[in-house]
Design a protein around this nucleic acid. Structure first.
Lengths: 309, 309
DNA sequence: GCCTGGTTTCGAAAATTACGAATTGATTGA
DNA sequence: TCAATCAATTCGTAATTTTCGAAACCAGGC
């Protein structure tokens, strides 16, 4: 029988990108985690991490396991949530799915208007791969999905994508990595390791085209469905990574990285995906209106309290 | 942090309908399970079981938790499956979702033809609530869903329901319960406790109408999304339960219950739900053909209409 | 009343998990 | 090139959790 405690530890290590960092978060010592993860690997009969230098890297199997583990503990958290909910307090729930590819700060900003309606709404957020969220949308377990790209057409789900706004893209690197960089952006990207968003983000293709057009060849050091995970690995110095320009300040502060340049030629766009053609839910309406009113032009500098996961 | 081992035990107890039976399956002693479940209840701050007489009954919270737990360990199993799969051996996979409301024996019979194709297929079965399976269908993680009713129209998913066959309904009771019954079916149902399938089955409404028409009033002792769970509780004597007539013998044998009567006025129907209007997948094709060739009419059982008590 | 089949309580034994001390191994930089 | 450093790991032991045997309890059935 699979040991779920081990799996929990694995998830935290994978998310943090390092054993010691995960140990800190879990209030455990590194050697404990190390051992427990080894047991997990033995139990599964497959290596989850590749020990590359003094850094851990997920193997193919590890990445696969990460997705499952994430799902499992997400549901576990939902279970606790569901049971702790006192049956009396029933505010209008606003159930939002947030694609992993959407930075949490962006999601936070976009969702703010929904919380300041006169009628108090209870926000229920659920993060996951876009595909999975769209499936939840189809069975009405979500009111809306926040994504990085419009509803993928290969999914057999009825739904509509409402554009919320767009902005340029900035590039970030850990301080150590930034030191090794030449002075002129974007030429200094040439030959550097780069972290890319996964297929859930519409950014990847234009980004690669943009690099190509400038004759820049980079080493793709990693590809991440989850934007926070990408940033976390970026913080650890695994590579340079892109992110929406409007949240550059937060990214620098939160992940202790520096912005090495930015461009408006690549555009990051955000969408609200709903089932209905015309939005009815007051919260979605409020969001959509505020976003069009220029959420992305006048950056309101919101402090982000959520942990870096 | 939630203890997933406890949750695992809870799931098994809930599914088996009794601590001691679950203990057997898990190769543990009842007192261990009892204790661990108590810890879980304490951890969650809510009772999962109601100790009614010498029988355990799921509370409202328990039922909720059951769904989540089921999901969690299903994904855990998938994780192991996914990792153990050697990347070389890749047969044509045939991914089938089976609604919890569909009896396993029926699913088995319906799926047989898919396995006897000349091209060897690898059958991947996934059980869950119909709603959830349809969502998986929409994102192409399943090729087909086997259900008790056609694609619900309230779900915003494109898909088509292909009828596979239908049959009458039989009623079963534990031996002890059957002894307390009058001789003439269906009049002897009056005043008895009855277990009903949940909303995932199309059976419930016609069933209640049928009872009404005969002026029979029953006490609804339980409502189950999962047909196996219903039978398990039925075996424990919680109430009389209905099931497809064609599998009456298996039900009697497997759950140690007796058939107390049957009717052809209530029809249980089965459907294959797919994304495409016209089925292409060879396995689905094979199933559909065989089912229409009379899987349900030429029932291998001896027909015995008289109520056994 | 007195079995029977089941659940629960209570220690003590067994297993698992966590930590301190010390090791290895890669990267940094004098 | 050779320490110094940072991170992962190994090993033996301590702390914690899980499990079980023994015995009590509880609701039917005879």
């Amino acid at each position: 029988m699979l040991n779920y405690k081990h799996l929990q530890y694995f998830l935290q290590v994978a998310k943090s990108g390092s054993v010691s960092r995960a140990a800190e978060k879990l209030h455990l010592t590194p050697q404990t985690l190390s051992g427990q993860i080894k047991s997990l690997e033995e139990r599964l009969g497959i290596e989850l991490f590749r020990r590359s230098g003094r850094r851990l890297e997920l193997t193919r199997a590890g990445k696969l396991a990460l997705h499952y583990a994430d799902e499992i503990f997400r549901i576990g958290a939902e279970l606790e949530e569901a049971l702790s909910e006192s049956p009396g307090t029933r505010m209008t729930p606003f159930r939002v799915g947030i694609s992993d590819a959407v930075p949490k700060t962006i999601a936070h900003r976009l969702l703010m208007p929904a919380l300041s309606l006169q009628e108090p709404v209870k926000l229920i957020c659920r993060e996951n791969r876009l595909e999975r969220l769209v499936a939840e949308l189809a069975i009405h377990r979500l009111d809306m999905v926040l994504a990085n790209k419009p509803l993928p057409t290969n999914l057999d789900v009825k739904g509509y994508s409402h554009p919320l706004g767009e902005c340029g893209v900035a590039f970030f690197a850990s301080k150590a990595l930034a030191h090794t960089l030449g002075p002129s952006f974007p030429a200094n990207l040439d030959g550097m390791p780069l972290l890319l968003p996964g297929e859930d983000s519409a950014l990847r293709v234009p980004l690669q085209r943009w690099l190509e057009k400038r004759g820049l060849s980079v080493r793709i050091a990693g590809e991440f469905d989850d934007s926070a995970l990408m940033k976390s690995f970026g913080e650890a110095g695994l590579g340079i990574f892109p992110s929406s320009a409007v949240i550059a300040d937060e990214v620098e502060r939160h992940y202790r990285v520096v912005r090495i340049g930015q461009t408006d030629e690549i555009r990051e766009r955000y969408f609200a995906i709903t089932v209905e053609r015309h939005v009815r839910h007051p919260a979605v309406l409020a969001m959509s209106e505020t976003a069009h009113g220029g959420l992305f032009s006048q950056s309101p500098e919101v402090s982000d309290r959520t942990g870096a996961n």
